[in-house]
């Protein structure tokens, strides 16, 4: 199963249960087919950077938001962030890191690697759903993004 070429929201989450819980509130904000879930860091980077099986996407539009789970197999969030920020094309794409147990050290590392925000997932689902809705509302509706590298000045 491969991701569609254009997306408003890319969720990077290896756990399908977690992904499903995320999709529930997010689905209220945009079309379900505008939301994609990458199952690991490799797939997310291939899709975002237009390489590997997503080579055809090279130069294609970037999503309005990437929701990145902190703990991922193989490539973790910090490594993904560093690769994205090192590439001029993806340097400014909004990335929000989701964590379940916020270690201050890990949170700090995420910000240093270029995360736009870090959110701790509350246990209570209603609180969690509210937090996700607020986040999506902000990044998908209010936030203005720049596609690709735009020369400034």
């Amino acid at each position: 199963m491969s991701l569609p070429d254009e997306l408003d929201l890319l969720i990077v989450e290896h756990d399908p249960l977690e992904a499903e819980l995320l999709l529930k509130p997010m689905g209220e904000l945009t079309n379900a087919d505008r939301i994609g879930v990458a199952r690991d860091g490799e797939e997310a980077l291939d899709w975002l950077l237009g390489r590997g099986r997503y080579r055809h996407r090279l130069g294609a539009a970037l999503p309005r938001l990437v929701l990145l789970e902190l703990k991922l197999p193989r490539l973790d969030a910090v490594e993904i962030l560093r690769t994205l920020r090192a590439n001029p094309r993806t340097a400014t794409v909004p990335v929000v890191v989701l964590t379940s147990a916020a270690e201050p050290r890990e949170v700090a590392q995420c910000y240093q690697a270029g995360a736009n925000s870090c959110i701790r997932k509350p246990v209570d689902f209603r609180e969690f759903a509210e937090a996700v809705r607020t986040t999506g509302d902000y990044w998908l509706r209010l936030n203005r993004t720049v596609q690709g590298a735009v020369p400034v000045g």
Binding site: D15, L17, S100, A101
Partner: peptide, 18 residues
């Protein structure tokens, strides 16, 4: 362990709520 336990617990909570 606590960290790893937390995830499934959240899922139980989440889906029960759903």
């Amino acid at each position: 362990v606590s960290h790893d336990l937390r995830e499934p617990l959240r899922h139980i909570c989440g889906f029960t709520q759903l």
